[in-house]
C-alpha cells in the first residue's frame, strides 16, 4: 500500500516536473527567438520584462485572447481531439526521465523521477509513436489541403525515423542490459558515458530526434514556405498554442532523453554524487539541466543554420542511410559483446 510520504513525494515530483516542463517551454520559446536574432545580427524580443524575460507570458496572453476559429469544412470532433492528442503524450513523456541523483529525505530514498517503470525506454518510444496521431488527425480533420499534406508528411516521416531511432536505442540497451533509464545511467556511472561506446548510435539518435520533433532540417510537416503551416494551418488561438507548446515539450524530452542515453544523465564525471549528500543531488540536477540545455541550444543553432531537406532526400536519408547504419551498429555491438563473452 502506498503510504502518505510516498504519495506526497509523488505529487510534489509530478508538480515539479510539470511546472519545470512548462517553464522550460517558456524559456525555449524566448531563447529560440533571441538566439535567432543574435545569429542574424539582431537582438530579438527584448522589451517585455528585463531583457524580454516576460515575452513568453505576453505571447501566452495573446494566444488566450485570440479568436478561436473552427473552419466550416473541418471535421469537428477530430479537429477538437487533435491538439489534445498531441499535447498529452508530449507532456506525459517526461515522467520516466530521471532528472537527478536519488535524494535522501528523513531517512528515505526518493528517486528524482516521477515514475520508475521497468520499461522506461519503451514507454518513451510508445508515447512518441502515439504523438503521430495528433498530427495526422489535425491534418486530416481540418479539411483543407495544406494541413492534409503536412499530416501525410509527418506520419510518413515519423514512422520512418522511429525505426532508426529504436534501433539506435537497442545498441545502448544491449551494452547496458536494462530497459530503464536508471539502469542505463547507473551503467554509465560505472563505465563511462555511452557516447564513447556507442558513437554511431548517438549520431543516429541525434539526427532522428530532430526528425521526430519536426525541427529543421526535417520540419517538412510545417514547411512554412510550401505548406503555409502544415498540419496546424487551420488552427488558431489556444489550440494552435497547444501544438506549439507540445512541439517544445517534445524537444525538451528528446534532449533529456539524449542526455540520459548517451551523456550519463545526471552523472557528473569523476565525482561521486552519493558521497556529497544534498550538494551531490543539487549538482546532479544542475548537470542534467546543463546537458539538456546544451542540446536544446544545439536544436536552435541547427535550426538557424541548416536549410530544409527535400522530401525525397529525407526519405533516402532515413531508409537508405540511417536504418542500415543502425542495423550495422546493432550487429557490431552484438559482435563485440559476443567476443567479450
Amino acid at each position: 500500500m502506498i503510504d502518505m510520504f510516498e504519495l506526497l513525494a509523488i505529487i510534489i515530483k509530478v508538480l515539479v516536473v510539470f511546472a519545470g516542463t512548462l517553464v522550460g517551454i517558456m524559456i525555449m520559446t524566448l531563447a529560440e527567438r533571441r538566439v535567432a536574432g543574435f545569429i542574424q545580427y539582431r537582438l530579438g524580443p527584448n522589451r517585455v520584462g528585463f531583457g524580454g524575460m516576460l515575452q513568453p507570458i505576453a505571447d501566452g496572453l495573446k494566444f488566450f485572447s485570440k479568436e478561436d476559429v473552427i473552419p466550416g469544412q473541418a471535421n469537428r470532433p477530430l479537429f477538437l481531439l487533435a491538439p489534445l492528442a498531441v499535447m498529452i503524450p508530449a507532456l506525459m513523456t517526461f515522467a520516466v526521465i530521471p532528472f537527478g541523483a536519488p535524494m535522501e529525505i528523513a531517512g528515505r530514498v526518493v528517486k528524482l523521477q516521477v515514475a520508475d517503470i521497468n520499461i522506461g525506454l519503451l514507454y518513451i518510444l510508445a508515447l512518441t509513436s502515439i504523438g503521430v496521431y495528433g498530427l495526422v488527425l489535425a491534418g486530416w480533420s481540418a479539411g483543407s489541403k495544406y494541413p492534409q499534406l503536412g499530416g501525410l508528411r509527418s506520419s510518413a516521416q515519423l514512422i520512418s525515423y522511429e525505426l532508426a531511432m529504436g534501433l539506435a536505442i537497442i545498441g545502448v540497451i544491449m551494452i547496458s542490459g536494462g530497459l530503464t533509464l536508471n539502469q542505463i545511467i547507473a551503467y554509465q556511472q560505472e563505465t563511462g558515458w555511452n557516447i564513447w561506446k556507442q558513437p554511431i548510435a548517438a549520431f543516429i539518435f541525434l539526427i532522428t530526434i530532430y526528425a521526430e520533433t519536426n525541427r529543421l532540417p526535417f520540419d517538412l510537416t510545417e514547411a512554412e514556405q510550401e505548406l503555409v503551416g502544415g498540419y496546424h494551418t487551420e488552427y488558431s488561438a489556444f489550440k494552435f498554442a497547444m501544438f506549439f507548446l507540445s512541439e517544445y515539450a517534445n524537444m525538451i524530452t528528446a534532449a533529456a532523453f539524449m542526455v540520459c542515453l548517451f551523456f550519463g544523465g545526471w552523472d557528473v564525471p569523476f565525482i561521486d554524487e552519493a558521497a556529497l549528500g544534498g550538494w551531490g543531488v543539487l549538482l546532479s540536477v544542475a548537470s542534467f539541466l546543463g546537458k539538456t540545455a546544451f542540446f536544446l541550444f544545439l536544436y536552435i543553432l541547427v535550426r538557424w543554420t541548416l536549410p530544409r531537406f527535400r522530401y525525397d532526400q529525407l526519405m533516402r536519408l532515413g531508409w537508405k542511410f540511417l536504418l542500415p547504419l543502425a542495423l550495422l551498429n546493432v550487429f557490431l555491438t552484438g559482435l563485440v559483446l559476443a567476443v567479450k563473452g
Partner: peptide, 8 residues
C-alpha cells in the same frame, strides 16, 4: 555570429 556586435 552570436557574439558579433548587433546592428539593431
Amino acid at each position: 555570429r552570436i557574439f558579433v556586435r548587433k546592428d539593431t
